[in-house]
Design a binder for these strands. Structure first.
Lengths: 136, 136
DNA sequence: ATAAAAATAGTAATCGTTATCAAAAAAGAG
DNA sequence: CTCTTTTTTGATAACGATTACTATTTTTAT
């Protein structure tokens, strides 16, 4: 069967895709692609790093997961697709969720100050995690 | 004269450093290191990209400028060292300042919800700039 | 079963940034 | 001013994270 031109390709639930998602959702940390690669390899030793990247990208586009662009060199992934805020340790890079309600009305407020069409917002705190506080 | 051990090396105001800073401050956009390199090259054609990176890093550490870790692949720099918020166009990557007062008390609120020591926060909006709105 | 579509593993390429290092420039001491 | 020390530079190599490529395999639909 030929796909109608312009139609979105059907997404398949492959073993690799499922396990990547399971591993990501099993954890409240915010693993990097490489972290996930290490986790998934325990169950699928032959998986390639490229497959992990590719699937994380795909699932983020579909809104199943979130790709976080928090500070630092590596991107992180979050199995919780709902908007929420994060704290990042500036020393070790650890990223935790922050149980803070979304700030009401900020997007409206921002929209009033600019000609941009506001789509979403992100609030990120930087600090020192308990462990790194001790070490200093 | 020998420098006392552990003392901070004295920073020199070189021609390259001055021009990089001037160029950055002459602009309200938030240029990447490469943008700055192109700008500075018009005045100092023999400067190297490494020098631009090195000096931006140094000046950011000294708090003279800000290194922004907004979304996207490249870091951006801001001649305005004071904390303020940004909007980023998700289509073209343009980053504008947002004339929005700092949200009072969020850091205190965040500190109450976590064991992290909060040092600072960052609020970033994502949207479509006027130009990209037209194009879609 | 067969054919079409999508995904995979493995690898190469790319991109932004950092590191290295010999040479040049700047500052202080005499 | 001259000598010495320190810092910075330009040039280039190295690096780490991510993306692209491709032949093969897997999945799905017919």
């Amino acid at each position: 069967m030929l796909l109608a031109p312009g139609s979105t390709p059907r997404i398949r639930i492959t073993r690799q895709r499922q396990i990547i998602l399971d591993e990501l959702c099993s954890v409240t940390s915010h693993p990097t692609a490489d972290d996930l690669y290490q986790m998934v390899r325990r169950k699928l030793p032959r998986i390639s790093l490229g497959t992990v990247y590719r699937n994380l990208e795909t699932m983020a586009e579909l809104g199943m997961i979130q790709k976080l662009e928090v500070g630092g060199t590596q991107k992180r992934f979050d199995g919780n697709a709902a908007t929420h805020y994060h704290v990042r340790c500036q020393r070790c890079g650890r990223v935790d969720d922050l149980d803070l309600g979304l700030i009401a009305g900020v997007e409206k407020e921002a929209a009033a100050k600019t000609r941009f069409a506001i789509l979403r917002h992100r609030l990120e705190f930087t600090g020192l995690c308990p462990e790194c506080q001790k070490k200093l």
